[in-house]
């Protein structure tokens, strides 16, 4: 823990401090995955890499989209596009809670003045066929992180178990800096020649995407794309592992998994458009889960995902 935590001046400073902190703990600092995902967990660095026995330690920022959370940029802290900070370590180290608390101190949270709590929250991703036990971490009643010990991913038991930390960056940053409305939060240093607030960057896009998610997106097209992604995922996994061109054994687990990510996001959009009923919902989730499981099965056949 840092001795005298200072309050960060901007959103990006918090991200930079987290990057430095977790780099210092030995994590590979990765970059965001280049697809639309609902949460940092969808990054293959977490879903796929939590499978198999190979040790793994990674940290990264992941832009995440939750179409139904759009509030036209008006809600003080609800966004349809936001950032998560994700840490994944396999096997989970015995002092993971202490490491986590250290990261809070690193971003300026004085643990002697704040009320930090680990409140039961069993994590489950029905679309990924994954679950784990852990907590949501509260700081003064605010949920600032999700802390999970993965037990299963893609229908496979996690052996060893990965520890996963997910920080909701905007909320956390607003809290640390005492900002009431996300759009008012400094994105870069307010003393910069061109100071930019979160709203300068994202207010307009929140409006545009809120309208898109709730009213604009073509449901017919989304339904078709969902079917396409589903079919493509299965088609890619049906290839003979032996690649005739390179002469190597190449299972296309990641490309197939990209289609799973697509299907999942399309489902979220359809949900926001309000065209999926309660009963259909289960069926859609089941279809995405089936893809995720097949990808996990495939990844376990690859070098990175095998048991050693």
């Amino acid at each position: 823990m840092s001795d005298a935590p200072t309050t960060p001046k901007s959103f990006q400073e918090i991200i930079l401090r987290l990057q430095n902190y977790w780099a210092a703990q030995g994590c590979a600092v990765l970059q965001p995955y280049d697809m639309e995902v609902g949460a940092g967990t969808f990054h293959p660095a977490t879903t796929l890499r939590s499978l198999g026995t190979k040790p793994w330690a990674a940290a990264y920022v992941q832009p995440s989209r939750r179409p139904t959370d759009g509030r036209y940029g008006e809600n003080p802290n609800r966004l349809q596009h936001y950032y998560q900070y994700q840490v994944i370590i396999k096997p989970s180290p015995p002092n993971l809670q202490e490491l986590y608390l250290g990261s809070l101190a690193a971003i300026g949270i004085d643990l002697g003045v704040h009320d930090i709590r680990f409140v039961e929250d069993d994590w489950e991703s029905p679309t990924l066929g994954a679950w784990g036990l852990g907590w949501e971490v509260w700081c003064d009643g605010m949920e600032v992180s999700q802390f999970t010990y993965f037990q299963q991913v893609g229908g496979h038991d996690c052996k060893p178990v990965s520890g996963e930390l997910t920080y909701g960056l905007e909320r956390l940053a607003m809290y640390v800096m005492g900002i009431d409305h996300v759009m008012e939060m400094p994105f870069n240093d307010p003393q910069s020649p061109i100071p930019l607030k979160y709203g300068d960057i994202f207010r307009q896009t929140e409006e545009e995407y809120s309208r898109h998610n709730f009213d604009g997106a073509s449901t017919e097209m989304l339904l078709q794309h969902f079917k396409d992604a589903e079919a493509e995922c299965e088609r890619l996994l049906a290839f003979d592992p032996q690649d005739p061109k390179s002469g190597k054994r190449i299972i296309m687990a990641h490309p197939a998994y990209d289609q799973t990510i697509k299907a999942s996001h399309l489902f979220n959009l359809l949900d926001a458009r309000g065209v999926i009923s309660v009963t259909e919902r289960q069926a859609y989730i089941g279809r995405v889960r089936a893809l995720a499981k097949k990808c996990a099965d495939a990844f376990r056949q690859t070098e990175a995902g095998a048991d050693q």
Binding site: P76, G112, V113, H114, D115, G141, M142
Partner: peptide, 27 residues
Amino acid sequence: VANIEAADGGEVILKGNQKVLAARLSD
């Protein structure tokens, strides 16, 4: 109910909780 006797008598904690509540209730 906090789990700590904060150095400032809980002022920061209460303020934080109030803020969270305001966000929830504005929703």
